[in-house]
Amino acid sequence: MTDNQPVISCRNAWKIFGDDPELFYKNITADMSFEDMRQKGYIAGVRDVSVDVAKGEMLVIMGLSGSGKSTLVRCLSRLHDITAGTITVDGQDLGSLSERELIELRRSKMGMVFQSFGLLPHRTVLENVAFPLEMRGQDKHERRKRALEVIELVGLSGREDYFPRELSGGQQQRVGIARSLAIEPDIWFLDEPFSALDPLIRREMQDEFLRLQEMLGKTIVFITHDFDEALRLADRIAIMKDGAVEQCATPDQIVLNPATDYVAKFTEDIDKARVVHAGAIAKPVNGTAVSGEPISSKKTIQELARLLVDDDRDLIPVTSDNGKVVGNLDRVQALDILLR
């Protein structure tokens, strides 16, 4: 039972900026648009958002700048207090925590990586990474040992004594990542961690990040404005606009069935074949014949391209990791996606 309970659960959360948000919230009507609120001097950073993040899942929140994605992640970590709604973390109501409890929660369970790194300029790499450990009062020796471990993990061994300004952007973000991992958090927030980096480095860091995630299996909320990045990394994607979540679904679903025009506009130029997996479009077997060599549900259509063209079956069986057949792939439908 507990395994199914989401790690983070956000219900009808609102975050309004302005002179008196509480009062303003009371007078909000259902048909009031983002623009209406702005005319009155209030900005709805987060508007009636409900999302869950399951244990070990990577939720990517995607949106253009100003869409409220950074605000949302700050609500989830309670860097901002929400105006209305509830957010629970491991079943605890985040809003009801005292300052002490909140600090305890952050010291034991949460890690966060920031867009412009947020490194303390006067501390060395080692001291930066050990900072959260120092804050929770770990002794010097232990803190050094743990920090060196994480530094090695992110591939910065040998640079412990450097100061942030002596490092490149990519290296600085590695320090940020190492710092956020130092306390071995269960929940990992990443706020556009690679946006400030050059495209080449960004790609490299994404690979690195996937490697880490495979190893660590954390519950992750990842913010980005880069749709490709989102597709590459996400288990599920939440697309935000004007503070509200437009659609929250797996990449396949978003690409195949955009919920709104706004989402559709994003997916327009995407090469769907690279996103959609065989599993996502497999139809239930329902008594149809299952014949021949099956394909893995984890493969994207593009990866299967040669097979799809060469094979002459109409329906190709799809199997999950454990070899069980989960359905049949309609070859024509798959080819349509590939050749669109």
Binding site: S77, M110, M112, F114, G118, L119, L120, F131, R136
Partner: peptide, 22 residues
């Protein structure tokens, strides 16, 4: 910079630690 402040907060600093170390 807000990033630095938030990094300090997310590291679980108390108010005094924030002032002194961040």
């Amino acid at each position: 910079p807000p990033d630095v402040v938030e990094a300090g907060q997310m590291s679980g600093s108390t108010r005094w630690q924030m002032l002194r170390h961040v």
